[in-house]
Design a protein around this nucleic acid. Sequence first.
DNA 1: TTGTATGCGTTATCAC
DNA 2: GTGATAACGCATACAA
Lengths: 340, 340
Amino acid sequence: MTSRRSSAPTLEAVAERAGVSRATVSRVVNGSPKVTSEVLASVNAAIEELGYVPNRAARSLASRRTQAIALVVPEETAKVFDEPYFANIVQGVALHLASTDYALSLLITSAGSVQKTRRYLLGGNVDGAVVVSHHEGDHLLDGVAAHLPLVFGGRPFRPTGGLTHYVDADNVGGGRQAVKHLIDQGCTNIATIAGPADMTAGLDRLQGFREALSAAKLDDSLVEHGDFSPVSGAEAMRWLLARGKRIDGVFAANDQMALGAYAVLAEHGLRIPEDVKVVGFDDDRAAATALPALTSVAQPSAEMGAEMARLLIRLIEGAGDVPEATVMPTELLTRASTGA
Amino acid sequence: MTSRRSSAPTLEAVAERAGVSRATVSRVVNGSPKVTSEVLASVNAAIEELGYVPNRAARSLASRRTQAIALVVPEETAKVFDEPYFANIVQGVALHLASTDYALSLLITSAGSVQKTRRYLLGGNVDGAVVVSHHEGDHLLDGVAAHLPLVFGGRPFRPTGGLTHYVDADNVGGGRQAVKHLIDQGCTNIATIAGPADMTAGLDRLQGFREALSAAKLDDSLVEHGDFSPVSGAEAMRWLLARGKRIDGVFAANDQMALGAYAVLAEHGLRIPEDVKVVGFDDDRAAATALPALTSVAQPSAEMGAEMARLLIRLIEGAGDVPEATVMPTELLTRASTGA
DNA sequence: TTGTATGCGTTATCAC
DNA sequence: GTGATAACGCATACAA
């Protein structure tokens, strides 16, 4: 049996204690400039003495603002919460919000709870939402953007009429960076294990691959798609080798697929990095501990989370100059797999 | 410029549309049994047509309940969010809550925001909280338990007078399990790299180590403490070897330290598992991909998160039979490091 | 600068 | 079973 909370002191109690009206207390609490320093002091004293803390529900009801934002994560994503990427996004968002006055509601949306999520978002529970999703056809939020400020993590698959804002890593640049590094290391026959065609991150990285090769006037036809899983990476690598062409460099759209390829290369008696150099993407935790350690393109996921939160708050507070797209720089971490 | 939300339909609008009073609509919304099926139908129709969704702030203000719970995570913990343990706890809590009517507020508490967190919790923003912490001296929540139902993740360091409930993994049993496995594999000189002395998880695992050795009448004096980091594991391993006694089995209180020990064993020309068998704890993602793959004790972290949420809700809803301690079973995953 | 009065959208206590 | 009506705790035009 736990004892129940003794009803908290209200604004009115503070008003009486300080000998002023409720309105004045409200002003003090909300930091209004129009209040005498004397009154301010006595009110603050009363607040302190009573341990007053404003009731959010009441405040939100009266002000029509909730001071809360939602972080929407699809269940499939949550299940792979151990992908550092998502965990870091969540962390970044939460950490930034901790320095503001906004609370964070974490929403995990399963296939069956789409309606529930929509209702939650549209039910005036939050002032805005950060959405971390990435698949095409997430109609989940169709129309919501018209009613609620939204910031997406990752470039949406299709343009959404100017009212979606998003924060993305520079996937094209990262892909370019990765492939350029392979070229610099002497590779001339470079293949890529691309991501699925329904995710912009995969497509953008592939484009980076093409741009780098085209700039160096090298062949860019060695392309196979995977679904970001290790087995799909192995599979793709098998197909690439089956083409019979020489391959001395591989750029995988993520580390998991790169590591999947490791095994297949070994099967074929190809050594990394002597025979084939490999670069991944994401700087998965497994990258550094792999043998050989995997060179990878890192994206600043925690910072991206923080940036999403920051932009959302600006949108909520009515800033008119919030950029539709925010692209954050990637970083190439060279390791043994490219002979670093 | 995003267009603003067109004020949502209120309960009153539904009432008018259905030709009944607001009270009746409220009853329908809250599933009261005292309502004619006809009225119920028409009200539901109106709700559907208007796309009505109740306003939480108003509801919470009137009912004095928030239908929200907080998940409190200390910042240091958040920073190691990539420890699967915490990510899984968060996931477990969030996923369970998704099947209920409760919303989840994620609170990351930094050293400087302790007061803010306390205010949030005591300010009637939530009906209860799940606290994932584990260090001694987290006075952060002193006294809060008296006002708000709380469920901790992990056994609190000191008893708290009967009003704290917690969910923990069977760390003692897990430690016992790990060491017993080493014994079964033929080890007779077993050492342990224990966790810090101010964390119950570490202490409990150490106790499991002692119990298993004592049951087998083996020496249990080979103990060195680390702080759960890889370097501390390496350090501890060095000290253990420096004692000059033969060691053919090592139980590390977590995988990170076990992997730290890997390198030191190699330096000393000791092979795993031929010369020394190693067992870790947590089933960190790095465990399976390590070379050799690390045998480890896994704890059901996602399930623990779900259980915490479940218990908290029962507390909130006044159940009197909620157990103070809930201990969840661990599982030994045998891999190459113990010659499996 | 400060106080007064009204409203925010629901729930809950009554009568009917 | 259903409908008025008073809270719930705070913000905010408006008056002073």
